[in-house]
Simulated scan of single mutants.
Amino acid sequence: PMMQSSTGGQILKRKGYTLSYNADYKTPQWVAWELTKKETQGKEERTDKFLPDPDVRGAKAYTGDYTKSGYDRGHMAPAADMKWSKQAMEESFYMSNICPQNPNLNRGDWNDLEEMSRQWAKKYGAVYIACGPIYDTKRPKRIGNNKVAVPNAFYKVILINDKKNPQAIGFIFPNSAGHKPLKKYMVTVDSVEKRTNIDFFPALPDEIENRIEAELVQELP
């Protein structure tokens, strides 16, 4: 992904994902990764060890910022997508990959989409995923000693680069309790780009990118 404004963050390349970090909010702007069919079959166990990111320059979040805040430590790149490598699994618990997330959302509908993404990776061989927080205000609520900013919503965009029928699907989830079918959160990738100021699939040929980002996918693949 590419930020369309001057507010680009620190780019951090990990074994399993890449992210752009916002030092003011102490959350990522975007986290992006490819998930292959083979990677869904890994055997690494969750570490559940949340760690401050050693590579973040300047202000950073610590696990204690979330304690008793009412918010989960919500993974952007999920641990379950990183079971193919011990290093990838450990790095998924860096706090730079974490956002304050409503517990019901984290464990419910957001988790459902993570599961669905793994199913698509198995079915289509690979998927490309980018996700992150949405802030609708310049002065978001903050939690913890390090003033981690609480998002208003979360986005996820998924590219199924199937040669015959490439599809790009956008999702926007309010950062609140909900219990809805995933279809209710589906939007065009274009609308996610407008709301976030991020260009998600710049590497695609323009005519394909423009077409699939404007399409509203009606049914889950």
Rank of each mutant, 00 (worst) to 15 (best):
M95D: 03
Q101F: 12
N152K: 10
G125E: 06
S5V: 03
Y25P: 00
P174F: 13
Y185S: 02
T7K: 13
D109Y: 06
K147G: 06
P52T: 08
Q167E: 10
T7Y: 11
K138S: 12
N111D: 11
M2Q: 15
Y185K: 09
A203V: 09
P151T: 12
I169G: 07
N197T: 03
N165C: 12
I172G: 05
V56Y: 08
G42Q: 08
K37N: 11
K83V: 04
K49M: 06
I143M: 05
K180F: 09
M3S: 11
K123L: 09
H179I: 01
D109S: 11
P103I: 13
G170P: 01
G8A: 15
E215R: 15
P205G: 02
N145I: 00
F154K: 11
D112E: 13
G58V: 05
D109I: 10
F171V: 05
N146Q: 05
P103G: 07
N22A: 04
I212K: 10
Y128G: 00
D109R: 10
T40V: 01
T137W: 06
D53T: 00
I169W: 10
D162F: 13
F201A: 03
S176M: 10
G144N: 03
P1E: 09
I158D: 09
D65G: 09
N197H: 09
I169T: 11
T67R: 15
A153G: 13
W110I: 03
K194F: 00
